[in-house]
Design a protein around this nucleic acid. Structure first.
Length: 450
RNA sequence: GGUCCGGUGGCAGAAUGGUGAUGCAGCGGACUGCAAAUCCGCGUAUGUGGGUUCGAUUCCCGCCCGGACCUCCA
Protein backbone atom coordinates (compact mmCIF):
# COMPACT_ATOMS: atom_id res chain seq x y z
CA UNK A 1 0.00 0.00 0.00
CA UNK A 2 1.38 3.39 -0.90
CA UNK A 3 1.64 6.05 1.78
CA UNK A 4 -1.17 8.59 1.57
CA UNK A 5 0.06 12.16 1.49
CA UNK A 6 -2.32 15.08 1.80
CA UNK A 7 -1.90 18.81 1.62
CA UNK A 8 -2.59 20.37 5.00
CA UNK A 9 -3.98 23.89 4.84
CA UNK A 10 -2.81 24.65 8.33
CA UNK A 11 0.89 24.10 7.62
CA UNK A 12 0.51 24.81 3.89
CA UNK A 13 2.57 21.74 3.10
CA UNK A 14 1.87 18.28 1.76
CA UNK A 15 2.55 15.74 4.47
CA UNK A 16 2.17 12.01 5.06
CA UNK A 17 -1.21 11.24 6.53
CA UNK A 18 -0.99 9.45 9.87
CA UNK A 19 -4.26 8.63 11.63
CA UNK A 20 -4.53 9.49 15.31
CA UNK A 21 -6.08 6.05 15.78
CA UNK A 22 -5.51 3.79 12.77
CA UNK A 23 -8.43 1.63 13.83
CA UNK A 24 -10.86 4.46 13.18
CA UNK A 25 -10.08 7.37 10.87
CA UNK A 26 -12.33 10.28 11.75
CA UNK A 27 -13.39 12.87 9.17
CA UNK A 28 -15.60 15.93 9.51
CA UNK A 29 -16.87 17.96 6.57
CA UNK A 30 -18.99 21.08 6.54
CA UNK A 31 -22.24 20.24 4.83
CA UNK A 32 -24.91 22.47 3.33
CA UNK A 33 -26.95 25.31 4.72
CA UNK A 34 -30.34 24.12 3.59
CA UNK A 35 -32.19 27.04 2.05
CA UNK A 36 -31.77 26.31 -1.67
CA UNK A 37 -30.76 23.64 -4.16
CA UNK A 38 -27.11 22.62 -4.09
CA UNK A 39 -24.99 24.11 -6.86
CA UNK A 40 -22.05 22.59 -8.65
CA UNK A 41 -19.61 24.50 -6.44
CA UNK A 42 -21.14 22.81 -3.39
CA UNK A 43 -20.86 19.58 -5.31
CA UNK A 44 -17.14 19.98 -5.83
CA UNK A 45 -16.60 20.01 -2.07
CA UNK A 46 -18.88 17.03 -1.57
CA UNK A 47 -17.11 15.05 -4.29
CA UNK A 48 -13.69 15.92 -2.91
CA UNK A 49 -14.84 14.57 0.44
CA UNK A 50 -16.33 11.54 -1.28
CA UNK A 51 -13.15 10.45 -3.04
CA UNK A 52 -11.11 11.17 0.08
CA UNK A 53 -13.38 8.97 2.18
CA UNK A 54 -13.51 6.26 -0.50
CA UNK A 55 -9.71 6.21 -0.51
CA UNK A 56 -9.47 6.18 3.28
CA UNK A 57 -11.91 3.26 3.39
CA UNK A 58 -9.69 1.47 0.93
CA UNK A 59 -6.61 2.07 3.07
CA UNK A 60 -7.96 1.73 6.61
CA UNK A 61 -10.28 -0.75 8.28
CA UNK A 62 -12.74 1.81 9.58
CA UNK A 63 -13.61 5.40 8.74
CA UNK A 64 -16.16 7.57 10.50
CA UNK A 65 -17.31 10.32 8.19
CA UNK A 66 -19.48 13.07 9.67
CA UNK A 67 -21.06 15.74 7.50
CA UNK A 68 -23.39 18.18 9.14
CA UNK A 69 -26.49 19.97 7.97
CA UNK A 70 -26.91 23.61 8.91
CA UNK A 71 -30.63 24.03 9.39
CA UNK A 72 -30.65 27.20 11.48
CA UNK A 73 -29.41 30.27 9.70
CA UNK A 74 -30.59 33.75 8.80
CA UNK A 75 -30.63 32.88 5.10
CA UNK A 76 -33.04 30.06 5.86
CA UNK A 77 -35.29 32.40 7.83
CA UNK A 78 -35.27 34.92 5.02
CA UNK A 79 -35.97 32.36 2.30
CA UNK A 80 -38.82 30.71 4.18
CA UNK A 81 -40.39 34.11 4.70
CA UNK A 82 -39.94 35.02 1.03
CA UNK A 83 -41.44 31.71 -0.07
CA UNK A 84 -44.31 32.03 2.35
CA UNK A 85 -43.59 28.61 3.81
CA UNK A 86 -42.51 27.34 7.20
CA UNK A 87 -38.87 26.86 8.02
CA UNK A 88 -39.48 23.16 8.61
CA UNK A 89 -41.01 22.77 5.19
CA UNK A 90 -38.13 24.60 3.51
CA UNK A 91 -35.37 22.72 5.29
CA UNK A 92 -37.04 19.30 4.94
CA UNK A 93 -37.50 19.76 1.20
CA UNK A 94 -34.01 21.15 0.70
CA UNK A 95 -32.43 18.25 2.58
CA UNK A 96 -34.42 15.78 0.49
CA UNK A 97 -33.30 17.47 -2.73
CA UNK A 98 -29.71 17.59 -1.51
CA UNK A 99 -29.69 13.87 -0.82
CA UNK A 100 -31.27 13.09 -4.18
CA UNK A 101 -28.78 15.25 -6.07
CA UNK A 102 -25.75 13.79 -4.33
CA UNK A 103 -26.98 10.23 -4.82
CA UNK A 104 -27.40 10.96 -8.52
CA UNK A 105 -23.74 11.83 -8.89
CA UNK A 106 -22.56 8.89 -6.84
CA UNK A 107 -21.64 10.68 -3.62
CA UNK A 108 -21.92 8.14 -0.80
CA UNK A 109 -23.78 9.24 2.34
CA UNK A 110 -21.78 10.09 5.46
CA UNK A 111 -21.88 7.78 8.46
CA UNK A 112 -23.44 10.50 10.56
CA UNK A 113 -25.31 13.54 9.27
CA UNK A 114 -26.12 15.62 12.32
CA UNK A 115 -28.44 18.61 12.13
CA UNK A 116 -27.58 21.79 13.95
CA UNK A 117 -31.07 22.15 15.45
CA UNK A 118 -30.73 18.74 17.08
CA UNK A 119 -27.57 19.82 18.91
CA UNK A 120 -28.48 23.13 20.50
CA UNK A 121 -27.88 21.67 23.96
CA UNK A 122 -24.31 20.70 23.07
CA UNK A 123 -23.70 24.18 21.69
CA UNK A 124 -24.96 25.82 24.86
CA UNK A 125 -22.67 23.58 26.91
CA UNK A 126 -19.66 24.64 24.84
CA UNK A 127 -20.58 28.30 25.09
CA UNK A 128 -20.90 28.01 28.87
CA UNK A 129 -17.43 26.48 29.00
CA UNK A 130 -16.03 29.32 26.92
CA UNK A 131 -17.58 31.91 29.20
CA UNK A 132 -16.34 30.12 32.29
CA UNK A 133 -12.79 29.99 30.98
CA UNK A 134 -12.83 33.65 29.98
CA UNK A 135 -12.77 33.05 26.24
CA UNK A 136 -16.26 34.43 25.70
CA UNK A 137 -18.37 37.23 27.11
CA UNK A 138 -21.97 38.36 27.10
CA UNK A 139 -22.91 41.73 25.68
CA UNK A 140 -26.36 43.07 24.89
CA UNK A 141 -27.94 39.63 24.77
CA UNK A 142 -25.20 38.27 22.54
CA UNK A 143 -22.41 35.95 23.53
CA UNK A 144 -19.18 36.69 21.74
CA UNK A 145 -15.91 34.85 21.39
CA UNK A 146 -12.95 37.00 22.46
CA UNK A 147 -10.24 36.44 19.87
CA UNK A 148 -7.71 38.23 22.07
CA UNK A 149 -7.91 35.30 24.48
CA UNK A 150 -6.69 32.79 21.94
CA UNK A 151 -3.05 33.50 21.03
CA UNK A 152 -3.18 31.11 18.06
CA UNK A 153 -6.05 32.96 16.46
CA UNK A 154 -5.29 33.38 12.75
CA UNK A 155 -2.75 30.60 12.65
CA UNK A 156 -4.91 28.18 10.70
CA UNK A 157 -5.70 30.56 7.87
CA UNK A 158 -2.27 32.16 7.99
CA UNK A 159 -3.17 35.69 8.85
CA UNK A 160 -2.55 37.97 11.77
CA UNK A 161 -5.39 39.59 13.68
CA UNK A 162 -3.95 42.97 12.69
CA UNK A 163 -4.33 42.18 9.01
CA UNK A 164 -7.89 41.24 9.62
CA UNK A 165 -8.67 44.54 11.20
CA UNK A 166 -7.01 46.50 8.46
CA UNK A 167 -9.16 45.02 5.75
CA UNK A 168 -12.41 44.56 7.55
CA UNK A 169 -15.22 45.26 5.12
CA UNK A 170 -18.01 44.99 7.57
CA UNK A 171 -19.01 47.49 10.15
CA UNK A 172 -18.04 46.35 13.61
CA UNK A 173 -20.88 45.92 16.05
CA UNK A 174 -20.45 48.37 18.93
CA UNK A 175 -20.73 45.72 21.63
CA UNK A 176 -17.65 43.82 20.44
CA UNK A 177 -14.48 44.18 22.46
CA UNK A 178 -12.37 43.42 19.42
CA UNK A 179 -13.42 43.81 15.85
CA UNK A 180 -12.55 40.18 15.25
CA UNK A 181 -14.84 38.84 17.97
CA UNK A 182 -17.60 36.70 16.57
CA UNK A 183 -21.04 35.63 17.69
CA UNK A 184 -21.58 32.39 19.57
CA UNK A 185 -25.17 33.09 20.53
CA UNK A 186 -27.57 35.84 19.57
CA UNK A 187 -31.06 36.84 20.68
CA UNK A 188 -34.03 35.76 18.58
CA UNK A 189 -37.03 37.98 18.06
CA UNK A 190 -40.45 36.36 18.48
CA UNK A 191 -41.32 34.59 15.27
CA UNK A 192 -37.77 33.57 14.56
CA UNK A 193 -36.36 30.19 15.60
CA UNK A 194 -35.09 30.34 19.15
CA UNK A 195 -34.15 28.21 22.10
CA UNK A 196 -34.10 29.01 25.79
CA UNK A 197 -30.60 29.54 27.09
CA UNK A 198 -28.79 31.10 30.06
CA UNK A 199 -28.69 34.28 27.95
CA UNK A 200 -32.35 34.31 27.08
CA UNK A 201 -34.21 33.02 24.07
CA UNK A 202 -31.86 32.95 21.13
CA UNK A 203 -30.13 31.01 18.42
CA UNK A 204 -26.55 29.96 17.79
CA UNK A 205 -23.96 31.70 15.65
CA UNK A 206 -22.73 29.82 12.63
CA UNK A 207 -19.41 28.42 13.76
CA UNK A 208 -20.34 26.89 17.09
CA UNK A 209 -22.46 24.15 15.54
CA UNK A 210 -19.49 22.48 13.89
CA UNK A 211 -17.48 22.62 17.10
CA UNK A 212 -20.37 21.01 18.95
CA UNK A 213 -21.18 18.33 16.42
CA UNK A 214 -17.61 17.34 15.63
CA UNK A 215 -16.98 16.98 19.36
CA UNK A 216 -20.12 14.94 19.90
CA UNK A 217 -19.41 12.44 17.12
CA UNK A 218 -15.63 12.49 16.70
CA UNK A 219 -14.22 13.64 20.02
CA UNK A 220 -11.89 16.46 21.02
CA UNK A 221 -9.30 15.56 18.38
CA UNK A 222 -9.95 13.89 15.07
CA UNK A 223 -8.10 13.31 11.83
CA UNK A 224 -9.39 15.44 8.99
CA UNK A 225 -11.59 18.48 8.70
CA UNK A 226 -12.52 19.64 5.24
CA UNK A 227 -14.52 22.06 3.17
CA UNK A 228 -14.24 24.65 0.43
CA UNK A 229 -11.33 27.06 0.60
CA UNK A 230 -13.77 29.88 1.23
CA UNK A 231 -14.51 28.31 4.60
CA UNK A 232 -10.93 28.52 5.77
CA UNK A 233 -11.56 31.97 7.09
CA UNK A 234 -13.50 32.82 9.10
CA UNK A 235 -15.49 29.63 9.57
CA UNK A 236 -12.75 27.10 10.20
CA UNK A 237 -10.50 29.56 11.98
CA UNK A 238 -13.34 30.28 14.38
CA UNK A 239 -14.29 26.65 14.83
CA UNK A 240 -10.75 25.82 15.73
CA UNK A 241 -10.50 28.71 18.16
CA UNK A 242 -13.71 27.70 19.95
CA UNK A 243 -12.86 24.03 20.13
CA UNK A 244 -9.29 24.45 21.27
CA UNK A 245 -10.36 26.92 23.95
CA UNK A 246 -13.00 24.45 25.14
CA UNK A 247 -10.53 21.57 25.10
CA UNK A 248 -7.11 23.17 25.63
CA UNK A 249 -5.09 20.02 25.12
CA UNK A 250 -6.83 18.85 22.01
CA UNK A 251 -5.61 19.23 18.46
CA UNK A 252 -9.15 19.63 17.16
CA UNK A 253 -8.56 18.69 13.50
CA UNK A 254 -5.16 17.15 12.94
CA UNK A 255 -5.31 17.79 9.23
CA UNK A 256 -7.17 20.40 7.18
CA UNK A 257 -8.28 19.76 3.61
CA UNK A 258 -9.67 22.56 1.45
CA UNK A 259 -10.77 22.31 -2.16
CA UNK A 260 -10.34 25.23 -4.54
CA UNK A 261 -13.27 27.09 -6.00
CA UNK A 262 -15.08 26.31 -9.20
CA UNK A 263 -15.59 28.83 -11.98
CA UNK A 264 -18.26 28.77 -14.66
CA UNK A 265 -16.99 29.91 -18.04
CA UNK A 266 -14.08 31.59 -16.32
CA UNK A 267 -16.16 33.50 -13.82
CA UNK A 268 -17.11 32.90 -10.24
CA UNK A 269 -20.65 31.67 -9.91
CA UNK A 270 -22.99 34.34 -8.78
CA UNK A 271 -26.65 35.12 -9.02
CA UNK A 272 -25.97 38.55 -10.48
CA UNK A 273 -23.92 37.14 -13.36
CA UNK A 274 -26.65 34.63 -14.04
CA UNK A 275 -24.19 31.75 -14.20
CA UNK A 276 -25.37 30.07 -11.04
CA UNK A 277 -25.71 26.38 -11.86
CA UNK A 278 -27.44 23.92 -9.59
CA UNK A 279 -26.67 20.23 -9.79
CA UNK A 280 -30.03 19.56 -11.32
CA UNK A 281 -29.58 22.31 -13.90
CA UNK A 282 -26.63 20.33 -15.20
CA UNK A 283 -28.29 16.93 -14.84
CA UNK A 284 -31.28 18.04 -16.89
CA UNK A 285 -29.32 17.41 -20.07
CA UNK A 286 -26.17 15.57 -19.01
CA UNK A 287 -25.51 12.11 -17.58
CA UNK A 288 -24.68 12.47 -13.91
CA UNK A 289 -21.52 10.47 -14.30
CA UNK A 290 -20.14 12.99 -16.81
CA UNK A 291 -20.59 15.77 -14.26
CA UNK A 292 -18.78 13.69 -11.67
CA UNK A 293 -15.92 12.92 -14.01
CA UNK A 294 -15.57 16.56 -15.00
CA UNK A 295 -15.13 17.53 -11.35
CA UNK A 296 -12.39 14.90 -11.00
CA UNK A 297 -10.59 16.13 -14.10
CA UNK A 298 -8.68 18.74 -12.08
CA UNK A 299 -6.87 18.12 -8.84
CA UNK A 300 -9.02 19.35 -5.94
CA UNK A 301 -6.65 22.19 -5.01
CA UNK A 302 -6.72 23.74 -8.47
CA UNK A 303 -9.37 26.17 -9.54
CA UNK A 304 -11.63 24.29 -11.93
CA UNK A 305 -13.34 26.04 -14.79
CA UNK A 306 -16.69 24.47 -15.59
CA UNK A 307 -17.62 24.62 -19.27
CA UNK A 308 -19.97 22.90 -21.64
CA UNK A 309 -16.94 21.72 -23.62
CA UNK A 310 -15.51 20.14 -20.50
CA UNK A 311 -18.77 18.33 -19.89
CA UNK A 312 -18.80 16.99 -23.45
CA UNK A 313 -15.22 15.81 -23.08
CA UNK A 314 -16.09 14.06 -19.84
CA UNK A 315 -18.88 12.28 -21.68
CA UNK A 316 -16.48 11.19 -24.40
CA UNK A 317 -14.03 9.90 -21.84
CA UNK A 318 -16.77 7.79 -20.30
CA UNK A 319 -17.75 6.51 -23.74
CA UNK A 320 -14.20 5.29 -24.12
CA UNK A 321 -14.01 3.75 -20.65
CA UNK A 322 -17.34 1.97 -20.98
CA UNK A 323 -16.35 0.70 -24.42
CA UNK A 324 -13.14 -0.66 -22.89
CA UNK A 325 -15.06 -2.39 -20.12
CA UNK A 326 -17.54 -3.80 -22.59
CA UNK A 327 -19.80 -6.54 -21.28
CA UNK A 328 -17.54 -7.57 -18.45
CA UNK A 329 -19.37 -9.81 -15.99
CA UNK A 330 -20.73 -8.16 -12.85
CA UNK A 331 -18.22 -6.37 -10.64
CA UNK A 332 -16.02 -8.58 -8.58
CA UNK A 333 -15.09 -6.95 -5.32
CA UNK A 334 -11.91 -8.97 -5.38
CA UNK A 335 -10.66 -7.16 -8.47
CA UNK A 336 -7.72 -5.22 -7.07
CA UNK A 337 -7.27 -1.52 -7.76
CA UNK A 338 -4.18 -1.27 -10.01
CA UNK A 339 -1.14 0.00 -8.16
CA UNK A 340 -0.61 2.99 -10.46
CA UNK A 341 -4.12 4.23 -9.75
CA UNK A 342 -3.75 3.84 -6.01
CA UNK A 343 -0.39 5.58 -6.13
CA UNK A 344 -1.88 8.53 -7.99
CA UNK A 345 -4.76 8.81 -5.55
CA UNK A 346 -2.46 8.56 -2.55
CA UNK A 347 -0.49 11.48 -3.95
CA UNK A 348 -2.81 14.13 -2.51
CA UNK A 349 -5.79 12.82 -4.46
CA UNK A 350 -4.22 13.27 -7.87
CA UNK A 351 -7.33 12.44 -9.85
CA UNK A 352 -6.01 13.79 -13.19
CA UNK A 353 -3.10 11.38 -13.00
CA UNK A 354 -5.43 8.56 -11.98
CA UNK A 355 -7.60 9.31 -15.01
CA UNK A 356 -4.52 9.29 -17.26
CA UNK A 357 -3.65 5.85 -15.88
CA UNK A 358 -7.21 4.75 -16.54
CA UNK A 359 -6.77 5.78 -20.16
CA UNK A 360 -3.71 3.54 -20.30
CA UNK A 361 -5.78 0.69 -18.88
CA UNK A 362 -8.49 1.42 -21.43
CA UNK A 363 -5.91 1.17 -24.22
CA UNK A 364 -4.95 -2.30 -23.09
CA UNK A 365 -8.54 -3.34 -22.45
CA UNK A 366 -9.55 -2.27 -25.95
CA UNK A 367 -6.69 -4.38 -27.28
CA UNK A 368 -8.26 -7.40 -25.59
CA UNK A 369 -6.58 -7.45 -22.19
CA UNK A 370 -9.34 -8.61 -19.82
CA UNK A 371 -7.25 -8.06 -16.71
CA UNK A 372 -6.82 -4.42 -17.73
CA UNK A 373 -10.57 -4.12 -18.22
CA UNK A 374 -11.17 -5.43 -14.71
CA UNK A 375 -8.49 -3.10 -13.40
CA UNK A 376 -10.20 -0.21 -15.13
CA UNK A 377 -13.49 -1.03 -13.50
CA UNK A 378 -11.84 -1.45 -10.10
CA UNK A 379 -10.23 1.95 -10.58
CA UNK A 380 -13.62 3.38 -11.40
CA UNK A 381 -14.99 1.98 -8.19
CA UNK A 382 -12.34 3.84 -6.19
CA UNK A 383 -13.33 7.08 -7.92
CA UNK A 384 -17.06 6.40 -7.86
CA UNK A 385 -17.18 5.94 -11.62
CA UNK A 386 -18.07 3.14 -14.05
CA UNK A 387 -20.65 1.69 -11.70
CA UNK A 388 -23.24 0.86 -14.34
CA UNK A 389 -23.27 -1.56 -17.23
CA UNK A 390 -21.97 -0.38 -20.57
CA UNK A 391 -25.41 -0.92 -22.06
CA UNK A 392 -26.96 1.30 -19.42
CA UNK A 393 -24.36 4.01 -20.06
CA UNK A 394 -24.72 3.98 -23.82
CA UNK A 395 -28.48 3.69 -23.95
CA UNK A 396 -29.88 5.42 -20.88
CA UNK A 397 -31.84 8.54 -21.57
CA UNK A 398 -32.16 7.83 -25.26
CA UNK A 399 -35.91 8.06 -24.88
CA UNK A 400 -36.64 5.83 -27.81
CA UNK A 401 -38.44 2.65 -28.69
CA UNK A 402 -35.72 0.00 -28.74
CA UNK A 403 -37.82 -2.43 -30.74
CA UNK A 404 -38.27 0.21 -33.41
CA UNK A 405 -34.54 0.81 -33.57
CA UNK A 406 -33.88 -2.90 -33.93
CA UNK A 407 -36.38 -3.02 -36.78
CA UNK A 408 -34.69 -0.09 -38.51
CA UNK A 409 -31.27 -1.67 -38.05
CA UNK A 410 -32.55 -4.88 -39.63
CA UNK A 411 -34.05 -2.89 -42.47
CA UNK A 412 -30.76 -1.07 -42.98
CA UNK A 413 -28.85 -4.34 -42.98
CA UNK A 414 -31.11 -5.68 -45.71
CA UNK A 415 -30.60 -2.47 -47.72
CA UNK A 416 -26.85 -2.79 -47.37
CA UNK A 417 -26.95 -6.41 -48.47
CA UNK A 418 -28.75 -5.41 -51.62
CA UNK A 419 -26.29 -2.53 -51.97
CA UNK A 420 -29.01 0.07 -51.62
CA UNK A 421 -26.70 2.43 -49.76
CA UNK A 422 -28.90 5.45 -50.25
CA UNK A 423 -31.63 3.72 -48.26
CA UNK A 424 -29.15 2.42 -45.66
CA UNK A 425 -27.66 5.88 -45.13
CA UNK A 426 -31.08 7.47 -44.96
CA UNK A 427 -31.99 5.18 -42.08
CA UNK A 428 -28.73 5.97 -40.32
CA UNK A 429 -29.11 9.71 -40.84
CA UNK A 430 -32.67 9.60 -39.66
CA UNK A 431 -31.66 7.87 -36.44
CA UNK A 432 -28.74 10.27 -35.97
CA UNK A 433 -31.15 13.16 -36.16
CA UNK A 434 -33.01 11.54 -33.27
CA UNK A 435 -29.81 11.22 -31.23
CA UNK A 436 -29.12 7.58 -32.03
CA UNK A 437 -25.72 6.65 -33.44
CA UNK A 438 -25.05 3.40 -35.28
CA UNK A 439 -21.77 1.55 -35.33
CA UNK A 440 -21.10 -1.34 -37.67
CA UNK A 441 -18.77 -3.75 -35.95
CA UNK A 442 -17.49 -7.22 -36.81
CA UNK A 443 -20.32 -8.76 -34.81
CA UNK A 444 -23.07 -6.66 -36.29
CA UNK A 445 -24.54 -3.22 -35.83
CA UNK A 446 -24.93 -1.68 -32.39
CA UNK A 447 -26.55 1.59 -31.41
CA UNK A 448 -26.03 4.17 -28.70
CA UNK A 449 -27.34 7.56 -27.76
CA UNK A 450 -25.39 10.58 -28.92
C1' G B 1 -5.00 48.09 0.57
C1' G B 2 -3.58 43.20 3.31
C1' U B 3 -2.86 37.73 3.20
C1' C B 4 -2.54 33.46 0.24
C1' C B 5 -2.65 30.51 -4.37
C1' G B 6 -1.66 30.10 -9.44
C1' G B 7 0.16 31.31 -14.83
C1' U B 8 2.44 24.49 -19.07
C1' G B 9 0.63 23.22 -26.64
C1' G B 10 -5.78 25.50 -29.96
C1' C B 11 -8.51 23.75 -25.22
C1' A B 12 -8.48 20.83 -20.63
C1' G B 13 -4.71 19.12 -17.43
C1' A B 14 -0.28 16.11 -14.94
C1' A B 15 4.96 16.03 -13.85
C1' U B 16 9.98 17.34 -13.12
C1' G B 17 17.06 20.45 -11.08
C1' G B 18 19.05 16.89 -16.84
C1' U B 19 15.19 14.29 -23.83
C1' G B 20 7.50 18.03 -20.71
C1' A B 21 2.21 12.64 -19.12
C1' U B 22 -2.84 12.07 -20.56
C1' G B 23 -7.44 13.50 -22.95
C1' C B 24 -10.13 16.57 -26.50
C1' A B 25 -9.58 19.22 -31.01
C1' G B 26 -6.40 19.26 -35.74
C1' C B 27 -3.51 16.70 -39.72
C1' G B 28 -1.93 11.99 -42.45
C1' G B 29 -2.81 6.67 -42.85
C1' A B 30 -5.27 1.63 -41.87
C1' C B 31 -10.18 -0.41 -41.43
C1' U B 32 -15.38 0.73 -43.69
C1' G B 33 -19.75 0.80 -49.57
C1' C B 34 -19.50 5.68 -46.83
C1' A B 35 -19.41 6.58 -41.79
C1' A B 36 -18.92 5.54 -36.56
C1' A B 37 -15.78 2.99 -33.27
C1' U B 38 -10.83 1.12 -33.08
C1' C B 39 -5.67 1.13 -34.45
C1' C B 40 -0.88 3.44 -36.43
C1' G B 41 1.71 8.03 -37.22
C1' C B 42 2.40 13.72 -36.97
C1' G B 43 2.57 18.78 -35.29
C1' U B 44 2.17 22.50 -31.47
C1' A B 45 3.51 24.61 -24.69
C1' U B 46 6.42 25.88 -19.43
C1' G B 47 3.59 34.60 -18.77
C1' U B 48 8.02 38.12 -18.46
C1' G B 49 13.03 40.07 -16.84
C1' G B 50 17.03 38.86 -13.79
C1' G B 51 19.76 35.45 -10.21
C1' U B 52 21.72 30.52 -8.30
C1' U B 53 23.51 26.08 -11.09
C1' C B 54 27.49 22.28 -15.47
C1' G B 55 22.22 22.45 -16.50
C1' A B 56 15.98 25.92 -14.43
C1' U B 57 9.74 24.82 -16.73
C1' U B 58 11.09 23.26 -11.65
C1' C B 59 14.76 26.89 -6.62
C1' C B 60 15.28 32.59 -5.44
C1' C B 61 13.98 37.98 -6.56
C1' G B 62 11.39 41.80 -9.53
C1' C B 63 7.40 42.72 -13.02
C1' C B 64 2.78 41.58 -15.61
C1' C B 65 -1.76 38.77 -15.54
C1' G B 66 -5.58 35.71 -13.16
C1' G B 67 -8.07 33.71 -8.82
C1' A B 68 -9.47 33.02 -3.52
C1' C B 69 -10.07 35.11 1.25
C1' C B 70 -10.23 39.70 4.38
C1' U B 71 -16.37 38.27 9.95
C1' C B 72 -22.02 33.72 8.81
C1' C B 73 -20.18 31.77 0.35
C1' A B 74 -18.27 24.78 -0.97
Amino acid sequence: MPQLTLHDSSSRTTVPFAPLAPGNVRVYYCGPTVYDLAHIGNLRAMITADILVRLLRHLYPRVTYVRNITDVDDKINARAHANGETIDSLTARTIRDFHDDLAAVGVLPPDVEPRATHHIGEMITLIERLIASGHAYEAQGHVLFAVAHFPDYGKLSGRSPDDLLAGARVEVAPYKRDAGDFVLWKPSAPGLPGWESPWGRGRPGWHIECSAMSHRYLGESFDIHGGGSDLLFPHHENERAQSQCCFPHSRFANHWVHNAMLLVNGEKMSKSLGNFLTIRDVLSDTPAEALRLLLLHAQYRSVLNFTRTGLDEAKQTLNRFYRAIGDLPPPDAADPVPAEILTAMCDDLNTPRALAEMHALADRALAGDHAAARGLRASGRLLGLLGQSSDAWFRAGAGVDEAEIDTLIAERLAARKSRDFARADAIRDDLAARGILLEDGPTGTIWRRA
